[in-house]
């Protein structure tokens, strides 16, 4: 939420919280901790603007970080952890929305944009390639007159 200041939104009056937290929070196994961070970065802090739970200092984000680590340590897969949170907070909690009917346009946007660009280029080139229309009889007459004189 503090990031809004970047462009002077300045409607930010809530005290900023920083994601500096308990050093004991991290899992002892660095591999598991890295996995927990990777999962946490895909989960939205529900009470913040647009931060992941890994970035946020909010209380709820801290609790969710803790739960993610508990589940990682218990051997759950990434998908299981994310599903557990989605069951409670819905797809809103995923910073990386799932690929489904309602997000088709979202995930399809790179392809659609490229296809649109290609289509415009092709249309423009086809137009460029078109030869000018043949002269009408009147024009031909005028041309002959011009050439004759």
């Amino acid at each position: 939420m503090i990031r809004l200041a970047l462009a002077f939104t300045l409607f930010l009056l809530a005290a900023p919280a920083f994601a500096i937290s308990d050093p004991n929070e991290a899992l002892p196994d660095p591999k598991q901790e890295a996995r927990a961070v990777a999962i946490g970065e895909q989960l939205r802090c529900l009470v913040c603007q647009n931060e992941s739970i890994e970035d946020s200092g909010a209380d709820l984000a801290r609790d969710l970080r803790h739960i993610v680590r508990q589940q990682v340590a218990a051997g759950k897969t990434d998908q299981q952890v994310i599903d557990w949170l989605v069951a409670r907070y819905g797809n809103f909690v995923r910073l990386r929305p799932p690929f489904e009917a309602s997000t088709l346009l979202l995930w399809g946007s790179p392809v659609l944009a490229l296809a649109g660009g290609a289509a415009i280029v092709l249309l423009a080139r086809r137009r460029q390639g078109e030869s000018p229309p043949p002269l009408s009889d009147a024009e031909r007459k005028r041309l002959r007159r011009l050439l004759d004189t």
């Binding site: 895909q42 992941s52 797809n91 309602s102 946007s109």
Partner: peptide, 22 residues
């Protein structure tokens, strides 16, 4: 990506977030 959550909410009634991973 920036506008999608708003339009998904308005047109589809879906609450989505689009963030850095996307």
């Amino acid at each position: 990506g920036t506008m999608y959550p708003l339009f998904a909410d308005l047109l589809l009634g879906e609450k989505l977030s689009v963030g850095a991973p996307f």
